[in-house]
């Protein structure tokens, strides 16, 4: 297995969920919360500890949209493309974010792992459409221009950190 990977976090999470197969989704959620994605190393480890096949864990992880097998950026920008946001022009906002960060439909995360841009089907804030979410903060009534300003602000935050 991967000797250089520290499994203590995974062990703790497994213990929290009593190593129960049925809680695999919750276990993966906690692992993702910690690493911001699902590191490949944890799959064979989980397979052994939970007595499941690695293919099955992979199968579960790839079924659900929220799991990411690739490292995500420090800022995860989710652009809502629910019905309400869509009819109020969420697409140009998405385009602007991608353009500002050099991302595309197939490339969601910047190489420096600072930003991830993705779409979600609804954030449940339809009254404020179009909305986006950066990590846990919701930004409402977005426009492409506001998107550019936001990126500028976030980049400054990164520089000052």
């Amino acid at each position: 297995m991967h000797e250089n990977f520290d499994f203590s976090v995974t062990d703790r999470i497994l213990a929290d969920h009593k190593c129960a197969q049925q809680l695999i989704i919750a276990i993966l959620q906690d692992i993702q919360e910690h690493y911001r994605y699902l590191p490949r190393e944890v799959f064979p480890y989980l397979a052994e500890k939970l007595d499941m096949s690695e293919a099955r864990i992979y199968s579960v992880a790839t079924f659900y949209e929220n799991f990411s097998l690739e490292p995500k950026g420090k800022y995860v920008i989710k652009i809502c493309d629910g019905t309400a946001c869509h009819v109020r022009h969420s697409l140009p906002i998405l385009e602007r974010f991608r353009q500002e960060l050099g991302l595309s439909e197939n490339k969601h995360t910047t190489d420096d792992l600072n930003f991830t841009v993705e779409t979600v089907s609804c954030l449940g804030a339809c009254g404020l459409a179009p909305v986006i979410m950066v990590n846990d903060d919701v930004y409402s009534a977005m426009t492409p221009e506001k998107a550019s300003e936001l990126i500028k602000k976030l980049k400054e935050e990164l520089a000052n950190a």
């Binding site: 992979y58 199968s59 790839t62 097998l69």
Partner: peptide
């Protein structure tokens, strides 16, 4: 359990882990 479904919908395939 060498193979399983991976992904979903029209992207679904039969696959080993990763």
């Amino acid at each position: 359990g060498a193979i399983d479904f991976a992904f979903r919908g029209s992207k679904m395939s039969i696959s080993t882990a990763f």
